[in-house]
Amino acid sequence: MTDATAPARTIERARRAGGAWIGPDWRNIGFVLPFLAVYVALLVWPLFDGIWISLQKFDMFDGTGAYAGLANYKRLFADKIFLGTIENTALFVVMTVPAFVVIGLGLALALNRPTRIAAVLRATFFATSVLSVTIVTIVWKMVYLPDRGLLTNILAVFGHEPIAFLSSQTLALPAIAIATVWWGIGLPMMLFLAALQQIPRELYEAAALDSAGRWRSFRHITLPSIRRTTVLVAVVEIVYQFQLFGQSLLLTRGGPNNASRPIVQFIYETGFRDWDLGYAAAASEVLFGLMLIAAMAQYLLTRRRGEG
């Protein structure tokens, strides 16, 4: 009968061969030290430094601050403008993230074909994601112009009056969301395409032999196979869309009447226009907390559904 502890004793003897302890070679840490140094300098240190600044009444001009405790956070949650930016940002995330997942998956399914037309369309849809936010906002400002914009001309064909999308409190944020989805749909599409191309074709052939239709194959083969990619796309887009800034600043300046002002724009204006850096840092930490909660909730919810 084989001794179950023999492998462990063999390893122990090998480690102590010659009376010298053979442990992990700590010299290997030299390979990761450059990355760790950059990571700590650019991410970890600014995170904790931002938390410290958020607890101060910080003077931007001379770089000094007086400890204020949680006073900045108390001000934030009594500030109606800041609370409005939380509502705007959360609503924007709700409008865009499901659209990125659904439209991205739909485009990937439609273009997952080895044809030239599909290749051209894939390149076309992905090309928008490499444009700068300035170009995107210029394009969509021309689309939304109430006097001679593209949408105005389309509405005129059907006999409708022009609509000032960017000047409407109810339509400004949805208009920014549409422009954002058009801009960023390329990345989710490519991620879904990569996942779809990893699914073995034999699964679909076996389903076809069992007389399974397209919907049944999609539900029982495609969706389970790309579940991890779906979670990835959702979490990445949640993090991205919580950082809405350039589109709202360039399209509406946060208006009308703060109806499209996001948290990042509030942070920017508070810190670099009003010079209240402690207050802006506190808003930044609230944004970080919201992003973390939303991303983790999406991940845990999707994981639980997948296990169920």
Rank of each mutant, 00 (worst) to 15 (best):
A68M: 06
L83K: 02
I185L: 06
T229S: 14
V97M: 06
A41K: 00
A195V: 07
I226Q: 09
T152E: 12
L155I: 02
M1Y: 12
M60Q: 01
E12G: 07
Q197D: 03
L155M: 03
A234R: 05
V44W: 04
A108E: 06
A90W: 09
F125H: 05
F165Y: 15
V236E: 00
R9V: 01
R113Q: 14
N72T: 14
S225Y: 04
T134F: 15
N88A: 03
F218I: 04
A14P: 00
M95E: 11
G306N: 12
F126N: 01
L107M: 13
R253G: 13
Q265P: 06
S168D: 15
V236R: 02
F242I: 04
Q241W: 07
V139S: 08
G184A: 11
G254A: 07
V102D: 04
R13Y: 06
M190K: 09
N258I: 06
R219T: 07
I199F: 08
V101T: 05
A282L: 01
A234I: 13
V233G: 05
A207Y: 08
L292Q: 05
V101K: 01
G30M: 08
F58C: 11
Y67R: 10
F92R: 03
W52M: 06
M291W: 12
G159E: 12
L166S: 04
G306S: 10
P46W: 10
Y268S: 14
T230N: 02
A110S: 10
G159Q: 12
S54G: 11
P256K: 08
V136W: 13
A172Y: 06
I263T: 08
D62T: 12
W26V: 09
A175S: 15
T180A: 07
G289R: 11
G289T: 05
P224W: 13
V233R: 02
H160T: 01
K57L: 13
N72C: 08
L70D: 11
F126S: 02
V181F: 12
Y268Q: 13
A110Q: 08
R75C: 01
P174T: 02
V233F: 00
V120G: 00
A37K: 01
A281Y: 00
T134Y: 15
A280M: 06
I221D: 02
V143C: 08
